[in-house]
């Protein structure tokens, strides 16, 4: 960038550049490409490399000699799936699946309502949904820290009004608390995605089917679900993927007893800088997420998920 040139000359140069095809293409695609290459592709590639390298336990320097030790470490048990890594991974998938199903079940009625109602009701409901959505994730997770626990708001209220003598296990910190926390956190993604696809739905079609004698269940199964499938899949993806990698919610609501994969990776990096192990573990998560997306994209296109 030539500093001190008269503005007009600069401008003329830019205009000239913009009027060529390659110039304009370069200016528009270039910056983001640079960012993606330097901050997404290069780091992830390096992570793949590191997953095949070991780190000196004394100096923490990377030893550039290819090894499978990190991957062996992930399988180092009999049976092989009995390592902390796989236990944490299965648990994360399980929690993410339950969370996704819960979000889907809960969001559908509300999305349907939103799609069919306009005006004031719509505005108020959407405001009430969007507000938690825009509120810091951390704040929302924290609000559940107050709710759960043996002395938390739920249990102390139940005891206070005399419904129970002691704290109920279900409302202690643990897996149920984590599922609730994650559902609360990612529910709006599901709702908005479903709403968007239901909003495009032609409701006269449904009424026509009803008039022709189809039962409610039939209509939902044969018309509503297929037509909103992109929304269902997209929404599920938006809930499932971040739930698998969740860190804050299980950290706050698990009381140290629940170890999801994100926490394992974090403790390896922060606690012992075992970046080889952490990278190998991340590869598994990344590959399974890419797998899930590939499956999802057989039913929807990326345009369905946003953009154009």
């Amino acid at each position: 960038m030539a500093v001190g040139d008269p503005e007009e000359t600069n401008r003329a140069a830019v205009v000239r550049l913009l009027s060529t095809r390659y110039g304009s293409l370069g200016i528009t695609t270039g910056p983001a490409l640079l960012w993606i290459a330097a901050l997404l592709l290069a780091p992830l590639t390096f992570m793949v490399v590191v997953s095949f390298l070991e780190v000196s336990p004394i100096s923490y320097e990377i030893i550039y000699e290819p090894t499978l030790a990190n991957y062996e470490g992930l399988f180092d048990a009999t049976p092989w799936w009995d390592t902390p890594f796989f236990t944490a991974l299965w648990l994360s998938y399980g929690i993410a699946t339950v969370t996704t199903l819960l979000c889907l079940t809960l969001a559908f009625p509300l999305a349907y309502l939103l799609a069919r109602r306009g005006g004031r009701t719509f505005k108020i409901i959407i405001f009430l949904v969007l507000l938690p959505f825009f509120t810091m994730y951390l704040v929302r997770a924290y609000s559940w820290v107050l709710m759960f626990g043996p002395g938390g708001v739920i249990n102390s209220t139940l005891i206070g009004v005399g419904l129970t003598d002691g704290p109920i296990e279900l409302f202690n910190y643990g897996i149920p608390a984590i599922v609730v926390g994650l559902t609360h956190a990612y529910f709006p993604y599901m709702l908005l995605t479903l709403y968007a696809s239901l909003d495009g739905l032609d409701f006269s079609l449904i009424e026509a089917a009803r008039d022709l004698g189809a039962s409610r269940v039939d209509v939902v199964r044969d018309h509503v679900v297929p037509l909103t499938l992109p929304g269902i899949i997209g929404g599920s993806l938006f809930v499932f993927v971040p739930s698998v990698g969740a860190f804050i919610t299980p950290r706050f609501l698990g009381q140290g007893k629940v170890q999801m994969i994100g926490m394992l990776i974090e403790s390896r990096v922060v606690g012992t800088y075992s970046i080889g192990y952490a990278s190998a573990a991340s590869m598994f998560v990344l590959v399974s997420i890419i797998g899930a997306m590939v499956v999802a994209f057989r039913y929807v296109t990326i345009e369905d998920l946003g953009g154009g």
Partner: peptide
Amino acid sequence: MVVPGIILGVALRIY
């Protein structure tokens, strides 16, 4: 947007 935060964070940190 879809890469889990923990993975992007760790990848960028070691990078």
